[in-house]
C-alpha cells in the first residue's frame, strides 16, 4: 500500500522538480539579459529618432509621445501608431515636424504578405509621407496624397489610417499642453 502510493506520487514529484528547475533557469536568464534587452530597445528608439531628426539632442517621453528637442527648442514630435493590416498588426513610428506636418514615418514591424503588402516598408511608399500636411494623409482615391501600393490596398489603407488617426489624436494632445 505504502509502496504503491509512493509510486503514484513519483511522476508528480518528478514533473514538479523539472518545472521548478526550468523556472529557476528561466528567471536566471531573464535577470542576466534584462538590462541588455532594455538597452537594445532604448538604442533602437534612439537610432530611429536620430534617423528622423538628425539634429536631435535630447528627447522626452511622456504620454506615449516623444518630444524632440535641440538646444532647448522643440524640433518635433514622434509617437507610435498601429493598425490592423492584411496579415496582422502594423506598427509605425510617426514623426511630426509641427502640429500640421508629418516629418516622416518608419514602419517598425509588420507581417504583411512578402512581395505585396510588405512593400509598405519600402522607401517608395514611406517617402510619400515626408513633409506631408496632416490633412492630406489619405489614399489618393479618398482625396489624399498617398498612392496605394498595387495589389495591396488593405496594407496601404491600414498604414494611412493609422498614421492619420494617431496624428490627429496626438496633435490634440500637443495643443493642450502649451
Amino acid at each position: 500500500m505504502k509502496n504503491s502510493k509512493a509510486k503514484q506520487a513519483l511522476p508528480i514529484l518528478v514533473l514538479t522538480v523539472v518545472v521548478l528547475i526550468a523556472v529557476s533557469v528561466l528567471s536566471f536568464t531573464h535577470d542576466i539579459t534584462k538590462a541588455a534587452i532594455a538597452e537594445q530597445k532604448d538604442n533602437k528608439v534612439k537610432n530611429m529618432l536620430k534617423e528622423m531628426f538628425p539634429s536631435i539632442e535630447n528627447y522626452k517621453y511622456e504620454d506615449n509621445l516623444y518630444t524632440i528637442s535641440s538646444q532647448d527648442d522643440i524640433i518635433g514630435y514622434a509617437f507610435l501608431a498601429s493598425g490592423q493590416g492584411y496579415g496582422g498588426e502594423i506598427e509605425i513610428l510617426v514623426g511630426l515636424e509641427d502640429e500640421n506636418t508629418v516629418k516622416s514615418i518608419i514602419i517598425i514591424s509588420q507581417t504583411e504578405t512578402p512581395g505585396i503588402g510588405a512593400r509598405i516598408t519600402e522607401k517608395s511608399f514611406t517617402s510619400q509621407f515626408v513633409n506631408l500636411p496632416i490633412d492630406d494623409i489619405a489614399l489618393s482615391r479618398d482625396g489624399g496624397k498617398i498612392d496605394a501600393l498595387t495589389g495591396a490596398t488593405i496594407s496601404s489603407n491600414a498604414t494611412v489610417n493609422a498614421v492619420r488617426e494617431t496624428s490627429i489624436e496626438k496633435v490634440r494632445l500637443i495643443k493642450e499642453v502649451p
Partner: peptide, 22 residues
Amino acid sequence: VFIVIIASFVTIVSLTFQAYFP
C-alpha cells in the same frame, strides 16, 4: 516534461538573441 524542457530552451534562446543579437 519534454514540453517544459523544449519551451525553456526556446525562451532562453529567444531572450539571449534579443539581448545580444538584436
